[in-house]
């Protein structure tokens, strides 16, 4: 074996070992800074009391941006997963993602929602099975994200509010790309194996890019302007921390 080949192979092996430092990754449901509890009553920006029983959303297209530049001077993008995941904040098993993030990553990118191909090619299976309930049968399309609860401010039966946000076609495409920056301590030796948490702050549903008050809009059940505003808000739900 020529020397350069051996050096090359050694390099690959070394690089592979370096990549091996990986963080597990998991969603952490919060309201503000407190851990979300379906029995607790919170207050939103408008002073409305809110109890949240349910929050689910689809994610897909998980990618990491690697700090280290490649030969062409570009940063590397690593595809972490092409699958869709249904994150149910009441379902602890669904919070932990089945892949890891390379320790050298500086950014984590994912899509909140279901891509248009899955919305236009008939009935899907697995987590995308319409039987999971995150699907509009009367007009084709996945419910990208759902939040439901009660509030004395809701002028509805049972004081319920319900946000089913979907729409995959322009101009009302509710799919959002989320880009999260990893904390600087990521990848340093002491933290190399610590889990990454995606802090998921449900208060942002009401106050993100837009303000959504339950008194004014207790329900969203179609694609459209309100769904787009809620989607802009849920784009801001997430923040990464490393324990």
């Amino acid at each position: 074996m020529p020397a350069y080949k051996a050096i090359f192979l050694f390099g690959v092996l070394f690089a592979a070992m370096a990549v091996k430092a990986q963080h597990s990754i998991e969603f952490n449901p919060l309201y503000g800074t407190a851990r979300w509890n379906p029995d607790s009553i919170y207050t939103n920006f408008a002073g409305e009391n809110v109890q949240i029983n349910k929050c689910l959303f689809y994610t897909s297209g998980w990618k990491a941006i690697i700090n280290q530049q490649n030969k062409k001077g570009q940063t590397d993008t690593v595809i972490l997963s092409n699958a869709h995941y249904l994150i149910d904040l009441s379902e602890p098993k669904s919070l932990k993602l089945p892949f890891t993030v390379p320790a050298r990553a500086t950014q984590l990118i994912f899509t909140l929602g279901v891509d248009s191909i899955k919305n236009t090619t008939g009935i899907q299976t697995g987590v995308l099975d319409p039987a999971r309930g995150m699907f509009w049968t009367w007009r084709t399309g996945y419910i990208m994200a759902r939040m439901q609860g009660t509030s004395p401010s809701a002028n509805t039966a049972g004081k319920r509010f319900s946000y089913d946000v979907g729409g995959f076609e322009s101009p009302y495409n509710a799919v959002r790309t989320i880009t999260l920056h990893l904390p600087e301590t990521t990848g340093s030796d002491n933290h190399a194996k610590n889990p990454l948490y995606i802090q998921t702050d449900l208060s942002k549903w009401f106050q993100g890019k837009h303000t959504i008050s339950i008194a004014q809009t207790p329900n969203c059940h179609n694609a459209g302007k309100l769904a787009m505003q809620l989607a802009d808000n849920y784009q801001q739900l997430f923040q990464l921390i490393l324990y």
């Binding site: 919305n119 236009t120 090619t121 008939g122 009935i123 319409p130 699907f135 049968t137 009367w138 007009r139 084709t140």
Partner: peptide, 20 residues
């Protein structure tokens, strides 16, 4: 499918009357 064209695939169409 549907009078408003809201359903974009024949396979999905029956889910509307089944669940309504």
């Amino acid at each position: 499918f549907m009078w408003d064209g809201g359903i974009n695939h024949l396979d999905l169409q029956p889910l509307a009357p089944l669940t309504a």
